[in-house]
Design a protein around this nucleic acid. Structure first.
Lengths: 141, 141
DNA sequence: TTTGGTGCAAATTCTTTGCATCTCT
DNA sequence: AGAGATGCAAAGAATTTGCACCAAA
């Protein structure tokens, strides 16, 4: 399935990479509509899903709820506001992580930090096993 | 608003603390129904929301989508399966975090790790300011 | 041309809420 | 008794999908 370069897809990815705001599909739709007024929300959802699945952007999820997308494909971490849902990049590379964690109960980038969480993503033993037996299965979200 | 100890609330919290599976509201509802067959999904949602708001449990959110709840109120981290959505506790305290991150590209607890993310939760400067001016505002989820 | 993509609207899925009734304290 | 809580069902949000038409390769 070769990804066709449609006007819509190109625009979506361009805007996403340009933005630093980790938009939701809904927010990004509002933005791309300024250039392509007739573009549908469904198209934005479909493209974000495909683009993130193929590694051209990242899909994020935080405590506040909505799924957000990030045009920055490098591994990096985030500051999530519990009140407004805003997400900022955490300006810390691997070497600074320790420092950041230690400072976590104080101020970081002007945020009042109330919690820290480290998440590892991967494939669990059961799924690894299932994968090798080629047994596809639909999962309830 | 003193939390009343109803049969439903007690059961929900008990089961949540007993489980190690970080259930969704839907999953937990299925479980508590075994004891209280007439309990409604709405009640489970309402109670999980209250219990987490009052610090008696934790509300989690991961890339896969659904909101999950955790009866363990101590700060700890998670392993999230990208395929089935399963969430396990990461057996690492503060001192081990560094080690875990370094091992992150290999195997942890049998998972094949594909990504690591650190999330800090807190209140952003804009919201802190807004808080002090007592200007309440509803936010789009 | 042909196959994937799009717009639109309807359908799903997850979560919240209004309301009449119940039940802790 | 009275403030909260519950069950139920309907409403809301967020996301996905079926389908007829369109457009990139």
């Amino acid at each position: 399935m070769p990804l066709r370069m449609t006007r819509q897809r190109m625009l979506i990815l361009e805007e996403l990479m340009r933005l630093k705001t980790h938009p939701t599909a809904y927010e990004l739709h509002a933005i791309v509509k300024r250039t392509l007024p007739q573009i549908s929300l469904g198209t934005v959802y479909r493209n974000l899903e495909q683009l993130s699945a193929s590694g051209r952007c990242q899909r994020l999820a935080f405590g506040s709820g909505n799924r957000r997308y990030d045009g920055n494909t490098e591994a990096h971490h985030h500051l999530c506001c519990l009140e407004c849902g805003r997400v900022d990049d955490l300006p810390a590379d691997g070497h600074e992580i320790e420092h950041v964690l230690k400072a976590a109960l104080g101020e970081v980038c002007g945020y009042r930090i109330t919690g820290v969480s480290i998440e590892l993503y991967g494939i669990c033993p059961a799924c690894k096993k299932r994968e090798t037996t080629k047994n596809k299965k639909t999962i309830r979200r």
